[in-house]
Computed example of a mutant assay.
Amino acid sequence: MSSMFCCSSIVPYRGSLLMHESKFQRFMTWAQRSKSSPVANSASYFQTPAHIPEFAVQLVQQINYGPVESKRYFIPSTNDSTDGNCGFLEVTEQDLIIGNFQKLNTYKNFKCTTHNKFFELNIYQKNPINKHHWRFNIARPSTDIDI
């Protein structure tokens, strides 16, 4: 169990409204009030069609202009509360590969000047269609394709 962010003073870095803005906002609302998240036993989420999440979020933490410290993955919980606040469960990168999730071309960046940290949020979806290239895309670990 570990903290989502280094502190509560993170701010958007070059923020802009995106097509998937609601997904980023759902995650950030949860992450800023959540102190930690255990790694879920996600095998049941990706093997049962009824439980397959609509998206996943990758949280990358790094020192500003430095090395990556961590990459964590989260999916919306199926146990949503009645007030509309969604929780998230932490999963592994292998879970996303098994579920055939692929990274979309959308991201948000956040910065903490107090701790000199930089955070990047990426959205993953199951079987996204790349309408620009219309090509088959094999799921690979992000460590193989991230630059």
Results as ranks from 00 to 15, higher is better:
Y73A: 06
Q102Y: 03
E69V: 03
I97M: 12
F74Q: 13
Q62H: 10
Y45A: 09
N105D: 15
R72I: 01
P53K: 07
H51C: 10
K71G: 00
N64I: 02
F74V: 05
D80M: 09
D83A: 03
V60M: 15
E90N: 08
S77P: 10
T92I: 01
Q102D: 11
N109W: 03
P49H: 03
C86T: 15
T82K: 09
S81R: 15
V91W: 02
E93A: 04
T106F: 00
S81C: 11
F55S: 14
I63D: 13
E90W: 01
S70V: 02
Q61E: 15
Q47V: 04
I75Y: 03
L89F: 09
P76T: 04
Q47D: 13
Y45M: 10
Y45R: 12
N100D: 11
H51G: 03
Q47K: 14
G84M: 09
G99M: 00
Q58P: 02
N100Y: 00
D95S: 13
N109P: 03
Q102H: 06
G84I: 05
V68G: 05
V60N: 14
N79P: 08
N79G: 07
E90V: 00
T48I: 07
A56C: 05
T48L: 04
K108E: 07
P67C: 06
F101N: 08
F55E: 14
Q102R: 15
F55I: 05
E54C: 02
Y107T: 06
I75L: 02
K108D: 04
I63T: 14
I52N: 08
G99S: 02
K108T: 02
K108F: 00
L89Q: 15
L104S: 05
L59Y: 08
F74D: 11
L104V: 04
Y65Q: 15
R72A: 02
E69W: 00
E93I: 00
K103P: 06
K108L: 03
E93H: 03
H51Y: 15
F55P: 11
L96W: 01
R72Q: 12
G84Q: 13
P67A: 11
E90T: 03
D83S: 10
P76E: 09
L104G: 08
R72N: 08
I98C: 01
G99F: 00
Y65A: 12
G66S: 06
I63S: 14
T78S: 10
K71M: 07
Q61M: 07
N85H: 14
E54M: 06
I98H: 03
G66C: 05
T78D: 14
N109T: 06
Q47A: 07
N85P: 05
V68S: 10
A50E: 14
Q94K: 09
F74L: 07
F55K: 12
C86N: 14
S81Y: 11
V91N: 08
I52T: 12
S70N: 12
N105V: 09
N85V: 11
N109I: 02
H51V: 01
Y73C: 07
A50Q: 13
N109Y: 04
I98A: 04
G99E: 01
S77N: 13
P53W: 02
I97Q: 13
I98D: 10
L104R: 13
K103R: 15
